[in-house]
Design a protein around this nucleic acid. Structure first.
Lengths: 194, 194
DNA sequence: GTCTATAGGCAGATAGAC
DNA sequence: GTCTATCTGCCTATAGAC
């Protein structure tokens, strides 16, 4: 009961998700197997099947937990940062943290592979991006209303642009092993709202 | 000898690259097999091994040909479009054409998977992005010099931002099956240089 | 250049004991 | 919950005939 999302006392299912998540974010969903996850946990493939009947279910659980964690982070930003510009900066920092762990955004990675994924996973990926866009749209509209964020056109479209820019910056920074590449893109993105 | 890049009289190796390219751009490098390519060609897996000893060599050939074709397109833009802004628009159109074929940029896709790829492929991906950045940097510097493109900071950094934005816009537009999502991002990108 | 046949390995998955 | 054992299928790759 008192288990946290990635705590050291987490159950096997949660620890399996931790291992699978790291693999999916670095190698892609088609780049890891039950054997990889089981080895990372120190159990057998058969035991892993007890917790997740198939790879599709594991993948769905992966996206669900990731989306919930992201939603929690956004709620925390709402609580702690009243200013629209601070919220946007904190949002970018979320991505920077993921990249700092040498990982791609889980849903950005899965977006690349979406044609090979079970429909349930593809749907969940869309919902992740929709939720991000909705939150960002609110932030941008708020910033425009109080004059702290300046941009042209539809706020929802601007929100899409923010997400795309950050995902693209992560995608390319990774093979270069260059964090500063991401930060330069992030700075330019923020400057665009001045 | 008189074979074109994707002509109907192309040899088996070229046609194999055509099929493999489409698969890699839609499913990723870990999302297709020799069996898929061979089936698409109407030959056996063993025959495909005659042309490409292993999947690594096939992958290298894929990136090489893609990079050369891209370089050719950039050279054509240089020839046909003297104005910096027109060049930038034509560059964006290159990406739009790829996405219009329901494909991801080959090197954007491979960038996501790079941790699972042979080192030779990872190196070739970096060279692709370097070449694009170099070309774009020249375009941006030219536009800034003659006053037709306006942007802040280092031109090379701005070029990186352009590539990242376009790759990210493609990545996310695909699962939505929404071309307009890409075009909206492209328009915002261009407007940013006004 | 293409084929049949085959090798060896790993994939996802299940049955059934403990 | 975790194990051993096993299944089926697909993977990359090779040998050798045509």
């Amino acid at each position: 009961m008192a288990e946290t999302q990635q705590g050291r006392d987490a159950g096997t299912a949660q620890r399996a998700l931790d291992v699978a998540e790291a693999l999916a974010q670095t190698r892609g969903f088609n780049g890891f197997s039950y054997a990889h996850v089981a080895a990372g946990l120190g159990i057998t493939k058969a035991s892993l099947h007890y917790h997740f009947p198939g790879k599709a279910e594991l993948g769905e659980a992966l996206i669900t937990r990731y989306s919930e964690r992201f939603a929690g982070a956004l709620a925390r930003i709402d609580d702690e940062r009243p200013a629209a510009r601070d919220r946007l900066e904190a949002y970018i920092e979320l991505y920077a943290d993921v990249l700092n762990g040498r990982r791609m955004c889980l849903c950005g990675m899965l977006a690349a592979e979406y044609e090979t994924l079970p429909a349930s996973m593809a749907d969940a990926i869309i919902r992740f991006f929709d939720a991000n866009q909705a939150w960002l749209t609110g932030v941008l509209e708020g910033g425009r209303a109080d004059g702290t964020l300046s941009f042209t056109g539809d706020a929802g479209e601007a929100a899409q642009a923010v997400i795309g820019t950050l995902e693209g910056a992560m995608l390319i920074a990774r093979p270069y092993h260059d964090l500063s590449r991401f930060h330069a893109a992030a700075r330019r993105l923020l400057d665009g709202f001045t």
